[in-house]
Amino acid sequence: MQTFLRGKCRNIGLRSAAVALATAAATLAACATAPAPNLPSAGANLNQTQPSGPSRWELVRWQQADGTLRDIPHGDNGQPIIFEFSDGIDAAQGTVSGTSGCNRFTGSYGKTDTGVRFDRVAGTRMACPPPRMELESALLKAMEGSFTTVGTQPSSAVSSGRQVVWKTASGDLLQFAEREGVGRRGASAAAGGVEKIVYIDSQRVECSGVGKMMCYRWRESPDSPWQLWYGPIEGLDFEQGVSYKLRVREYQVPNPPADASAIRWELLKVESRTRAQ
């Protein structure tokens, strides 16, 4: 990897799909004209192994134009940076939403000859610690220009899932990995889920997990006692001072990280919202 960052390009053997993608990203950053070995072309269609439909992608690596890696801090409840594409990553156009480091965002996307572009991106305006705000600002700024696809990795027997590397207008490389949880591609995770109604309090409260964090207060009925919810509510654009009645899908997360919840909630519908007096 250091060899690439110093600008000395040479062919190497790729031992795994994960190594192939990371190596290809570094190679393309330093040697824009050199072919990436054993990597699908920039125009490769990721649907060659997946059906069309909604898909969910997590930002897992950010390499800046000078070759240094940018830290990707997660949210208060461990939320990653997520892009949810309404019609799949290969669709000609559609809507995109997700989390940008601190706030939730929505907008539209469209396929270009070389990658993808984003339009009319708008987000909530919650304040977060400086590292997350700085990352979010940089990401939203990057989304003002088109992303060029410089590497793809379809699903296979030797890879953990589909991945894509996009190059921003400023030369940064953003690596995204597909995650379960939206549409048909999340069917395996959601199939065992259970729909339920939950009531969410109008204020989040400080709580302790692995460290200090902010939790939702929730209950199963209007007269039940409040309980703490330590994880995110995926798809909810929470507004302080507003209480919610939500229909969610709850399912178990297999082998969750030590600092993450073993139960996941995915928003299906906001049944009602009431502003606190």
Rank of each mutant, 00 (worst) to 15 (best):
M214V: 12
P131M: 14
G110V: 08
D119F: 06
R120S: 11
D223F: 08
S97R: 12
G192N: 07
S100I: 03
Q227Y: 07
G107D: 12
S170I: 15
G151I: 05
S224Q: 06
W226N: 03
E134I: 15
V182E: 15
G123E: 15
W229I: 09
L228W: 15
S208G: 06
Q203N: 05
R117V: 09
S100P: 06
P130Y: 13
F176L: 01
F147G: 03
D87F: 13
V165I: 09
P225T: 10
R184I: 12
T114P: 05
L135Q: 09
K196R: 07
K167F: 11
C215R: 09
F105D: 07
A187E: 08
R184D: 15
R184L: 13
K167R: 12
G186R: 04
P222I: 01
L135N: 10
M213D: 09
E180T: 14
A177L: 05
A187W: 10
A138K: 04
R204V: 11
A92F: 09
A157C: 05
S108R: 12
P154K: 02
K212A: 09
V210F: 08
A191M: 03
W218S: 02
N103F: 04
C102S: 15
W218Q: 09
Y199V: 01
D201P: 06
S97Y: 09
E206A: 02
A122W: 04
G123I: 07
T152R: 02
I89E: 04
D172L: 04
Q153I: 02
K212I: 13
R120L: 11
E144Y: 10
G181S: 13
I200W: 07
C128V: 08
Q93T: 15
C128A: 02
K167L: 11
E220W: 02
E178K: 00
C128P: 03
I200Q: 04
L140K: 05
R219V: 01
V165H: 00
M214P: 12
T106D: 14
V164E: 05
S170D: 15
P222N: 05
D201M: 11
G161I: 00
M133V: 01
Q227I: 06
R217C: 00
N103E: 10
G110I: 12
A138V: 12
D90L: 14
D87R: 10
R125I: 13
G88V: 00
G192I: 08
S137W: 12
F85A: 08
A189Q: 13
I89D: 05
T112H: 13
R217N: 03
R117D: 14
C102Y: 10
T95H: 07
G183I: 11
E220K: 07
T99G: 15
E195K: 04
A187V: 06
S208C: 13
P131S: 06
